[in-house]
Write a protein that binds this DNA or RNA. Structure first.
Lengths: 323, 323
DNA sequence: CTAGATATACTCTGATTGAGTATATAGGGG
DNA sequence: CCCCTATATACTCAATCAGAGTATATCTAG
């Protein structure tokens, strides 16, 4: 009965970088199959900790030397591998977020960097509210909320309209919260609006005719892991200086701003961003300037590693600015 | 080689409650053995998700019905079970935090609620800086920092004095950060100052003569899990209304403040706390008053569940107030 | 009735934030 | 060369909020 022998532990990594204002994640792609996050088994006999195991197989598979690494979440779902039936070993999967500063040549064939917002297009508000929300997602979500059967089995659970209000700012009252990436994906899955829900045979998915593809799907629950990673990163941005893990050694303030905008998914007020970053003591000027910006040359800055010692916590905390 | 058959997955829970101004955690105690967090194996064949598995064995073992539950961290260390040698199965452990509003009768024999600050006395700053820090911990940490061998193997790692400054606010520059509970415990472990380090045969532990017991030790790495739970909870307190998970249905504002202080470990400014909580729309008066407070009767309040719908995030965010 | 204890209300000041305007310095076209 | 445009950088202003303190209200004990 208690067949622990059939458990296998895997490590999934969302390896993130920002290039030219686009946040990317490392994916593998083969044939017609959906994209997948890189994956490696955890062998406790070879590696003392999960972190070490992760760094090792990433190095072996891709040649990448990871810097910042953070554990996200452990999934033990039986439903995870619905595709391959319930016969195989039960896989526990530990999700990780890793940040890298530059995208190197990859040794892993089939691996490349894919854009976050190709997978989750509704999360990119930098140029205003995404069209796909207005034209495709919101009307269907409203339908789904109205069709609310009495299936709210959980005690004190929220109703469907309430959940729409919280997650998608539908129905007034609440604003769009850029940190609720995971909640939104899971709601879309539950409503049967993402391809993974159809793949997994979720009943809600059968209700939709002529449903366009809402974002590029991924294998297994990898789009959920990516959503978890983005949620965590967007949150952390506000109280820890993690942006700099994704920056080159020197950079202009506008490049820094573009990176923050890429990750957080919304536009920021330029002057206030400068004030915050400079007054916060997060950066120091190198003395050089960059003339590649077009107009007046921009001063180059570097991250002041000392802040990690001075302040208990410090990030690029600021609210969304209007476009 | 790849002996996955020897892996076993366990769920450890830090089940937290606050009573009479003291934050507690559910522990089991038998004979002379150190206290332990309740533990249950995860059997994927019986339970669909880790969360369900956790709730199930907690219900079965203790009769407790958990409300708020949050995954903390997954440990895969080989060193975890050093006590029993390296021969047994390799246990992966998923740590959980659970909050309960009231402490019920426990069906589990040997189980009881133990006070956080019995295990981690240096974390309770409500009555000012704890004596144990000044008299026992700080002098030894300074010694440890001076003895700094060139063992900083990790790239770009911080020096020992730098780490003391960050974690323990030693050496000036930084303030005590109440969220760094885990970092502090791990540093104490590394310096050999907690009983678990001696138990595990850490070399640093052998340097100390007449070392008093710094906080009650726990079995395995359970004090580390408890530290993780407290870190997470103290952080979350500031931006999510989780305090109310630990409150009865109705309460006075002072009781609420006492609970926040118990968890965060420091004293708050009473008037400002009121202003924040009331203006934030977190609570609503019930109309009744409580005369059990001694002086003027205190209005009773209840948590406004609606805030979960209105605000994207909202907590009891405030800095430490002087005594 | 008074002292002591607690709850509640209000004030003041400085810091932070959101938003906007003004100035500086480059390249390119006429 | 000068003007235009694009970008970077500097400064202003009002609203809000956080920290700290003072004043008032209402109970119980004696």
């Amino acid at each position: 009965m208690n067949e622990t022998a059939s458990i296998e532990i895997g490590l999934n990594a969302a390896i993130v970088s920002v290039r030219e204002g686009q946040p990317n994640v490392l994916v593998t792609r083969e044939g017609d199959k959906w994209d997948a996050l890189p994956y490696g088994p955890f062998t406790p006999l070879d590696h003392r900790t999960l972190d070490i195991g992760l760094r090792n197989w990433v190095r072996e598979q891709t040649g990448l030397e990871l810097g910042y690494v953070e554990q996200l979440y452990t999934f033990g779902d039986r439903g995870r591998h619905a595709q391959r039936g319930d016969a195989g070993p039960h896989v526990m999967s530990v999700g990780y977020l890793a940040l890298i500063g530059e995208e190197p040549q990859l040794e892993l064939k089939g691996a490349s960097f894919g854009r976050w917002y190709a997978y989750l297009p509704w999360e990119d508000w930098r140029a205003g509210k995404p069209d796909i929300l207005v034209s495709e997602i919101e009307p269907r979500l409203k339908q789904w909320a109205e069709r609310c059967e009495v299936d709210e089995t959980r005690v004190a659970a929220l109703t469907r309209p309430e959940r729409l209000r919280i997650c998608f700012a539908l129905g007034g009252g609440a604003d769009w919260d850029e940190e609720k990436v995971l909640e939104r994906y899971e709601l879309l899955y539950e409503a049967g609006l993402v391809a993974e829900a159809r793949r997994d045979g979720r009943s809600a998915a059968k209700q939709w005719d002529d449903l366009p593809q809402l974002g590029r799907p991924m294998q297994f629950d990898h789009r959920r892991i990516l959503s978890t990673a983005i949620s965590r990163l967007r949150g952390k941005l506000k109280y820890r200086p993690v942006v700099f893990e994704m920056m080159p050694e020197t950079f202009t303030l506008f490049e820094l701003q573009k990176t923050v905008e890429a990750v957080s998914g919304h536009h920021l007020h330029k002057q206030n961003f400068r004030r915050l970053v400079e007054n916060g003591g997060l950066v120091e000027p190198t003395g050089d300037v960059s003339t590649e910006t077009g107009g007046r040359p921009a001063k180059l800055f570097r991250f002041r590693r000392d802040v990690l010692l001075e302040r208990p916590s410090l990030g690029v905390r600021m609210k969304a600015g209007r476009i």
